[in-house]
């Protein structure tokens, strides 16, 4: 564990808590893509099956359980409890165009051709693009609430910090996982446009609005 990894994990945790708090306090999931949230739940469910097969640390297990349970809770809140506020008309990204190619790629490019390893690879690839329905939704509505922007910034920062963690681990531990690094870079690149808007607008007290 290094400082980048720790701050990255905390940023990921913060993102999820921010999203849940926003929904709970406003009793609404307006502006949030349910499709992205389903993809994140799928990501965690397929990645953390190793909870049943290998133990790494208490920290590791607690975080995995937290991520799986909160992602399911988020999906539940969106599709059941606060369903009336879900903006499905703007959440029209075709997720099959992500899940099917990513599934195929996980079969073809993986560290080992075994069920758990393929599922892990699938989750890494899927996570890298899971935010696309959310970004697509924002581009359709042309705006994002400030709290949603904070959520996205924390969520995007997490993988960017993981890249620093991988650089650190490569130099000091000789650790290098090509699949995670490439997918992590793709994931971070997808957020760059948003990061720019966040820094130039939200941090100066303005809302994100996009030209039509």
């Amino acid at each position: 564990m290094n400082i980048f990894r720790l701050i990255g994990d905390m940023s990921h945790l913060l993102a999820i808590i921010l999203l849940l708090l926003k929904m709970w306090k406003t009793r609404s999931c307006a502006g949030i893509s349910g499709k992205s949230q389903i993809l994140f739940a799928l990501v965690f469910a397929s990645r953390y099956l190793d909870l049943f097969t290998s133990f790494v640390s208490v920290y590791n297990s607690v975080m995995k359980i937290f991520f799986i349970s909160t992602s399911l809770l988020t999906v539940y809140l969106m599709y059941f409890k606060f369903r009336a506020t879900y903006d499905s008309n703007h959440d029209t990204f075709r997720v099959e165009f992500l899940v099917i190619p990513v599934g195929g790629l996980a079969f073809l490019v993986n560290h080992e051709f075994s069920p758990l390893e393929i599922l892990w690879t699938f989750s890494i690839y899927l996570e890298s693009v899971a935010i696309l329905p959310q970004l697509f939704m924002m581009s359709k509505t042309g705006e994002a609430e400030t709290i949603t922007s904070h959520y996205l910034f924390a969520l995007g920062s997490y993988r960017a910090l993981y890249i620093l963690n991988w650089v650190y681990r490569y130099y000091f531990e000789g650790f290098f996982d090509l699949i995670a690094v490439v997918a992590g870079c793709v994931q971070t690149i997808l957020y760059c446009d948003f990061f720019y808007l966040y820094i130039t607008k939200v941090l100066k007290g303005k809302r994100i609005t996009l030209p039509a």
Partner: peptide, 10 residues
């Protein structure tokens, strides 16, 4: 050799 099944990262 590192055990690739022991995923330390989240």
């Amino acid at each position: 050799e590192e055990d690739i099944h022991k995923k330390d990262e989240l």
